[in-house]
């Protein structure tokens, strides 16, 4: 159940361009090695994805209000 729900959320976040920032893994208390591996990998992955893109959005909105969104956005005017 959990794996399905989390996959659901992963997919949904993926649509919005926030993919890869949610992970799920089962690690028993005996699997210290695996825990380290999973957490290290995930930390690495998050770091490679960069800081939370959402935190930049209030600024983008202000920019949009000033008509600057086109320049800020990665979506260039056609």
């Amino acid at each position: 159940m959990t794996v399905k729900r989390i996959t659901f959320l992963q997919e949904l976040l993926g649509l919005l361009g926030l993919g890869g920032r949610l992970g799920l893994s089962w690690i028993s208390s005996a699997e210290a090695q695996k825990f380290v591996q999973v957490v290290t990998d995930f930390t690495q992955k998050i770091k490679s994805l960069g800081p939370n893109p959402l935190s930049a959005f209030p600024e983008k909105r202000k920019a949009a209000a000033a008509g600057l969104l086109l320049e800020q956005s990665s979506v260039m005017p056609a």
Binding site: L15, L16, L18, R61, A64, S74, V75
Partner: peptide, 19 residues
Amino acid sequence: DVEAYDETERLDRWMYEFQ
């Protein structure tokens, strides 16, 4: 088609809508 946008573009476009 919406899913075909690349990662940042997807985010920008959707956030534009949600905002």
